[in-house]
Nucleic acid binder design. Structure first.
Lengths: 123, 123
DNA sequence: CAGAATCCTGTGAGATACTG
DNA sequence: CAGTATCTCACAGGATTCTG
Protein backbone atom coordinates (compact mmCIF):
# COMPACT_ATOMS: atom_id res chain seq x y z
CA UNK A 1 0.00 0.00 0.00
CA UNK A 2 1.05 3.56 0.16
CA UNK A 3 0.25 5.73 3.12
CA UNK A 4 -0.67 2.90 5.39
CA UNK A 5 1.77 0.29 6.48
CA UNK A 6 1.40 -2.72 8.68
CA UNK A 7 2.25 -2.94 12.34
CA UNK A 8 3.80 -6.17 13.48
CA UNK A 9 1.87 -7.59 16.38
CA UNK A 10 -1.18 -5.72 17.69
CA UNK A 11 -1.37 -4.88 21.38
CA UNK A 12 -3.74 -2.66 23.30
CA UNK A 13 -3.03 1.04 23.27
CA UNK A 14 -2.81 3.33 26.26
CA UNK A 15 -3.16 7.06 26.47
CA UNK A 16 -1.69 7.45 29.88
CA UNK A 17 1.98 7.41 30.62
CA UNK A 18 3.45 5.09 28.07
CA UNK A 19 3.44 5.04 24.32
CA UNK A 20 4.35 1.53 23.21
CA UNK A 21 5.97 1.22 19.83
CA UNK A 22 4.34 -1.95 18.65
CA UNK A 23 0.74 -0.96 18.96
CA UNK A 24 -2.26 -0.38 16.67
CA UNK A 25 -2.49 3.10 18.09
CA UNK A 26 0.66 4.04 16.26
CA UNK A 27 -0.71 2.81 12.97
CA UNK A 28 -3.91 4.79 13.24
CA UNK A 29 -2.07 7.84 14.50
CA UNK A 30 0.24 7.57 11.51
CA UNK A 31 -2.64 7.40 9.07
CA UNK A 32 -4.43 10.36 10.53
CA UNK A 33 -1.34 12.47 10.98
CA UNK A 34 0.03 11.51 7.60
CA UNK A 35 0.98 14.49 5.53
CA UNK A 36 -2.51 14.90 4.06
CA UNK A 37 -4.59 12.89 6.48
CA UNK A 38 -5.80 15.70 8.68
CA UNK A 39 -6.57 17.94 5.72
CA UNK A 40 -8.53 15.27 3.89
CA UNK A 41 -10.58 14.39 6.95
CA UNK A 42 -11.39 18.01 7.64
CA UNK A 43 -12.22 18.81 4.05
CA UNK A 44 -14.64 15.91 4.04
CA UNK A 45 -16.20 17.03 7.27
CA UNK A 46 -16.67 20.59 6.15
CA UNK A 47 -17.29 20.82 2.50
CA UNK A 48 -17.02 19.19 -0.87
CA UNK A 49 -17.31 15.49 -1.10
CA UNK A 50 -16.47 15.01 -4.73
CA UNK A 51 -13.01 14.13 -5.94
CA UNK A 52 -12.59 17.37 -7.84
CA UNK A 53 -13.76 19.46 -4.92
CA UNK A 54 -11.36 17.81 -2.56
CA UNK A 55 -8.57 18.24 -5.02
CA UNK A 56 -9.32 21.92 -5.31
CA UNK A 57 -9.85 22.59 -1.63
CA UNK A 58 -6.73 20.86 -0.41
CA UNK A 59 -4.22 23.02 -2.18
CA UNK A 60 -1.02 21.36 -3.19
CA UNK A 61 -2.11 17.76 -2.88
CA UNK A 62 -1.18 15.59 -5.80
CA UNK A 63 -3.69 13.26 -7.41
CA UNK A 64 -1.62 10.35 -6.27
CA UNK A 65 -1.63 11.39 -2.64
CA UNK A 66 -5.31 12.27 -2.66
CA UNK A 67 -6.15 8.84 -4.02
CA UNK A 68 -3.73 7.14 -1.69
CA UNK A 69 -4.92 8.94 1.42
CA UNK A 70 -8.55 8.32 0.55
CA UNK A 71 -7.91 4.64 -0.02
CA UNK A 72 -6.13 4.29 3.28
CA UNK A 73 -9.06 5.86 5.09
CA UNK A 74 -11.46 3.73 3.14
CA UNK A 75 -9.59 0.62 4.24
CA UNK A 76 -9.63 1.93 7.79
CA UNK A 77 -13.37 2.43 7.59
CA UNK A 78 -13.20 6.16 8.09
CA UNK A 79 -14.32 7.11 4.62
CA UNK A 80 -17.01 5.69 2.40
CA UNK A 81 -16.60 5.81 -1.35
CA UNK A 82 -19.51 5.91 -3.74
CA UNK A 83 -18.81 5.72 -7.44
CA UNK A 84 -21.36 6.19 -10.20
CA UNK A 85 -20.68 4.37 -13.45
CA UNK A 86 -21.72 7.31 -15.58
CA UNK A 87 -19.77 9.14 -18.21
CA UNK A 88 -18.09 11.24 -17.12
CA UNK A 89 -17.75 9.35 -13.87
CA UNK A 90 -18.78 10.88 -10.60
CA UNK A 91 -17.36 9.74 -7.31
CA UNK A 92 -18.44 10.92 -3.92
CA UNK A 93 -16.62 10.43 -0.67
CA UNK A 94 -18.13 10.79 2.72
CA UNK A 95 -17.08 10.20 6.26
CA UNK A 96 -18.42 7.11 7.93
CA UNK A 97 -19.73 7.54 11.47
CA UNK A 98 -16.31 6.45 12.65
CA UNK A 99 -14.63 8.96 10.38
CA UNK A 100 -16.88 11.70 11.62
CA UNK A 101 -15.89 10.93 15.17
CA UNK A 102 -12.26 11.29 14.23
CA UNK A 103 -12.81 14.51 12.30
CA UNK A 104 -14.71 16.04 15.17
CA UNK A 105 -11.69 15.55 17.38
CA UNK A 106 -9.53 17.25 14.80
CA UNK A 107 -11.58 20.41 14.58
CA UNK A 108 -10.57 22.00 17.90
CA UNK A 109 -6.96 21.37 17.01
CA UNK A 110 -7.19 22.96 13.59
CA UNK A 111 -9.11 25.90 14.93
CA UNK A 112 -6.42 26.44 17.47
CA UNK A 113 -3.69 26.13 14.86
CA UNK A 114 -5.47 28.57 12.58
CA UNK A 115 -5.64 31.04 15.45
CA UNK A 116 -2.03 30.70 16.54
CA UNK A 117 -0.05 29.72 13.47
CA UNK A 118 0.93 33.25 12.53
CA UNK A 119 2.36 33.96 15.94
CA UNK A 120 4.19 30.64 16.11
CA UNK A 121 5.79 30.83 12.71
CA UNK A 122 6.63 34.49 13.14
CA UNK A 123 9.04 33.93 16.01
CA UNK B 1 16.72 22.64 10.70
CA UNK B 2 15.37 19.18 10.95
CA UNK B 3 11.74 18.57 11.65
CA UNK B 4 10.69 22.12 10.95
CA UNK B 5 11.09 23.79 7.64
CA UNK B 6 10.21 27.21 6.42
CA UNK B 7 7.13 28.27 4.55
CA UNK B 8 7.60 30.84 1.84
CA UNK B 9 5.25 33.75 2.33
CA UNK B 10 2.90 33.80 5.32
CA UNK B 11 -0.78 34.32 4.78
CA UNK B 12 -3.70 33.99 7.15
CA UNK B 13 -5.07 30.50 7.69
CA UNK B 14 -8.67 29.41 7.46
CA UNK B 15 -10.38 26.42 8.92
CA UNK B 16 -13.47 26.64 6.82
CA UNK B 17 -13.66 25.45 3.28
CA UNK B 18 -10.22 26.00 1.88
CA UNK B 19 -6.79 24.81 2.87
CA UNK B 20 -4.24 27.09 1.21
CA UNK B 21 -0.85 25.60 0.54
CA UNK B 22 1.29 28.59 1.29
CA UNK B 23 0.16 29.27 4.81
CA UNK B 24 1.65 29.22 8.31
CA UNK B 25 -1.07 26.79 9.28
CA UNK B 26 0.60 24.13 7.21
CA UNK B 27 3.91 24.65 8.93
CA UNK B 28 2.48 24.34 12.41
CA UNK B 29 0.33 21.40 11.40
CA UNK B 30 3.43 19.73 10.00
CA UNK B 31 5.37 20.24 13.22
CA UNK B 32 2.62 18.90 15.41
CA UNK B 33 1.76 15.99 13.18
CA UNK B 34 5.38 15.17 12.50
CA UNK B 35 6.17 11.55 13.20
CA UNK B 36 6.90 12.13 16.88
CA UNK B 37 5.26 15.50 17.46
CA UNK B 38 1.99 14.29 18.90
CA UNK B 39 3.68 11.74 21.11
CA UNK B 40 6.17 14.23 22.52
CA UNK B 41 3.50 16.80 23.25
CA UNK B 42 1.32 14.27 25.00
CA UNK B 43 4.15 12.77 26.99
CA UNK B 44 5.03 16.23 28.22
CA UNK B 45 1.46 16.95 29.14
CA UNK B 46 0.99 13.75 31.03
CA UNK B 47 4.15 12.62 32.66
CA UNK B 48 7.88 12.82 32.81
CA UNK B 49 9.55 16.01 31.86
CA UNK B 50 13.13 14.90 31.94
CA UNK B 51 15.01 13.83 28.85
CA UNK B 52 15.47 10.29 30.04
CA UNK B 53 11.84 9.92 31.01
CA UNK B 54 10.66 11.14 27.66
CA UNK B 55 13.06 8.83 25.93
CA UNK B 56 11.73 5.88 27.89
CA UNK B 57 8.07 6.73 27.60
CA UNK B 58 8.05 7.34 23.89
CA UNK B 59 9.08 3.90 22.78
CA UNK B 60 11.04 3.68 19.61
CA UNK B 61 12.09 7.29 19.33
CA UNK B 62 15.76 7.79 18.60
CA UNK B 63 17.83 10.29 20.50
CA UNK B 64 18.22 12.29 17.37
CA UNK B 65 14.52 12.58 16.75
CA UNK B 66 13.72 13.34 20.37
CA UNK B 67 16.23 16.17 20.34
CA UNK B 68 15.11 17.40 16.97
CA UNK B 69 11.42 17.34 17.83
CA UNK B 70 12.01 19.07 21.15
CA UNK B 71 14.08 21.77 19.50
CA UNK B 72 11.45 22.42 16.90
CA UNK B 73 8.82 22.86 19.57
CA UNK B 74 11.15 25.01 21.57
CA UNK B 75 11.64 27.28 18.57
CA UNK B 76 7.88 27.34 18.09
CA UNK B 77 7.42 28.37 21.69
CA UNK B 78 5.47 25.27 22.62
CA UNK B 79 8.10 23.79 24.88
CA UNK B 80 10.35 25.38 27.45
CA UNK B 81 13.75 23.89 28.14
CA UNK B 82 15.51 24.25 31.44
CA UNK B 83 19.04 22.94 31.78
CA UNK B 84 21.01 22.72 34.98
CA UNK B 85 24.77 22.94 34.69
CA UNK B 86 25.34 20.17 37.18
CA UNK B 87 27.27 16.97 36.76
CA UNK B 88 25.65 14.82 35.64
CA UNK B 89 23.54 17.32 33.78
CA UNK B 90 19.82 17.49 34.31
CA UNK B 91 17.47 18.95 31.75
CA UNK B 92 13.78 19.46 32.19
CA UNK B 93 11.28 20.18 29.49
CA UNK B 94 7.88 21.57 30.04
CA UNK B 95 5.03 22.80 27.95
CA UNK B 96 4.59 26.52 27.69
CA UNK B 97 1.06 27.83 28.09
CA UNK B 98 0.86 27.76 24.32
CA UNK B 99 2.09 24.20 24.24
CA UNK B 100 -0.41 23.17 26.85
CA UNK B 101 -3.20 24.60 24.75
CA UNK B 102 -2.04 22.50 21.83
CA UNK B 103 -1.65 19.35 23.89
CA UNK B 104 -5.11 19.75 25.35
CA UNK B 105 -6.56 19.65 21.89
CA UNK B 106 -4.65 16.50 21.16
CA UNK B 107 -5.98 14.56 24.11
CA UNK B 108 -9.49 13.87 22.84
CA UNK B 109 -7.99 12.67 19.60
CA UNK B 110 -5.57 10.28 21.23
CA UNK B 111 -8.22 8.96 23.58
CA UNK B 112 -10.40 8.26 20.63
CA UNK B 113 -7.59 6.58 18.76
CA UNK B 114 -6.73 4.46 21.77
CA UNK B 115 -10.35 3.35 21.97
CA UNK B 116 -10.76 2.56 18.30
CA UNK B 117 -7.35 1.58 17.01
CA UNK B 118 -7.82 -2.13 17.49
CA UNK B 119 -11.02 -2.20 15.53
CA UNK B 120 -9.62 -0.05 12.75
CA UNK B 121 -6.41 -1.98 12.27
CA UNK B 122 -8.19 -5.32 12.55
CA UNK B 123 -10.29 -4.86 9.42
C1' DC C 1 -13.81 13.32 -14.53
C1' DA C 2 -11.48 10.34 -11.66
C1' DG C 3 -8.25 7.93 -11.34
C1' DA C 4 -4.07 4.00 -12.30
C1' DA C 5 0.68 3.07 -13.58
C1' DT C 6 5.55 4.44 -13.76
C1' DC C 7 9.40 6.44 -12.68
C1' DC C 8 12.08 9.33 -9.71
C1' DT C 9 13.75 12.07 -5.63
C1' DG C 10 14.09 14.78 -1.16
C1' DT C 11 14.28 14.42 3.37
C1' DG C 12 12.52 12.64 7.52
C1' DA C 13 14.30 9.41 10.10
C1' DG C 14 17.43 5.48 11.90
C1' DA C 15 22.10 3.58 13.52
C1' DT C 16 26.23 4.25 15.41
C1' DA C 17 29.83 6.59 17.72
C1' DC C 18 31.53 10.23 20.46
C1' DT C 19 31.51 14.06 24.34
C1' DG C 20 31.04 17.89 28.10
C1' DC D 1 23.01 12.13 31.79
C1' DA D 2 21.90 14.57 27.87
C1' DG D 3 22.94 15.35 24.22
C1' DT D 4 25.83 16.28 19.16
C1' DA D 5 28.01 14.59 14.86
C1' DT D 6 28.03 11.66 10.78
C1' DC D 7 26.70 8.62 7.63
C1' DT D 8 23.12 6.33 5.38
C1' DC D 9 18.77 5.20 3.26
C1' DA D 10 13.83 3.77 2.95
C1' DC D 11 9.95 5.49 1.65
C1' DA D 12 6.48 9.07 1.61
C1' DG D 13 5.55 12.01 -1.74
C1' DG D 14 5.97 14.40 -6.49
C1' DA D 15 5.84 14.66 -11.73
C1' DT D 16 4.31 12.82 -15.69
C1' DT D 17 1.81 10.05 -18.73
C1' DC D 18 -2.10 7.24 -19.95
C1' DT D 19 -7.11 5.64 -19.79
C1' DG D 20 -12.20 3.91 -19.05
Amino acid sequence: MDVSFAVSRPRPGLTSGKYPADCPTRTVLTHITSRWGVLVLLALEQGGHRWGELHREIEGISEKMLASTLRTFEADGLVHREAQATIPPRVDYELTPLGREAAERLLPLMDWIADNAEAIVAR
